[in-house]
């Protein structure tokens, strides 16, 4: 892996391709989970890939490459949420968060539908924390690095998110 990173830093295209193919799915899941829109998530992933290649020389190896690159995906998604998209207005996340393609949804699972809707209603930081901690299964430290905040902030944010999820899921049922 380290050799691949070094080769990609030197500009070797095969190494860059290997890294992108390895990271495209985690990036896409993260962007789709945060943005809730397939097209926006695709654009965000491509932007993430460009920034990843541009900033690869800054990767020091303090964390996993995937964790570090998820931080880029989170930053790109934050920017996409802030910038008004074509079609007007701020982006409203009201699409299903985890799986947008209806064919990939779990049929008849009302709880999953409820979780998607409730997750989409969470504040951005809480949604980031839930996805990183429970869906990507990163540690608190790794989540903090990806989010660019302190570990205590991650713990507090996750605590608030779980409380909000519990309350909203009760209302749903």
């Amino acid at each position: 892996m380290d050799r691949t990173i070094e080769a990609a830093r030197r500009g070797e295209r095969d190494a860059q391709s290997r890294l992108l193919r390895q990271l495209q799915d985690p990036w896409y899941r993260m962007c789709l989970g945060l943005l809730g829109d397939v097209e926006m998530a695709r654009e965000a992933v491509q932007e993430t890939a460009l920034r990843f290649l541009q900033n690869l020389h800054k990767f020091r190896g303090d964390s996993q490459l995937q964790t570090w690159s998820l931080g880029i995906a989170i930053n790109v998604s934050r920017e996409f949420r802030r910038v008004p998209r074509a079609g007007g207005g701020e982006q409203e996340i009201n699409e299903p968060v985890m799986v947008d393609d209806p064919a990939e949804r779990i049929d008849g699972d009302e709880q999953q539908d409820a979780l998607r809707v409730v997750l989409a209603q969470l504040p951005d930081r809480q949604r980031e924390a839930v996805i990183l901690r429970f869906f990507e299964q990163l540690s608190v430290e790794e989540s903090a690095k990806a989010m660019g905040c302190a570990t205590g902030t991650v713990k507090a944010t996750v605590h608030q998110a779980l409380r909000a999820l519990r309350e909203k899921l009760k209302q749903w049922t």
Binding site: Y28, R29, R42, A49, M98, I106, Q111, Q112, F134, Q137
Partner: peptide, 19 residues
């Protein structure tokens, strides 16, 4: 619920060849 959500989350794949 979160556990099942994670399983669904992990099934998502990028639809194109990013490289």
């Amino acid at each position: 619920t979160v556990e099942r959500g994670r399983e669904a989350y992990q099934t998502v794949r990028y639809p194109d060849d990013l490289a």
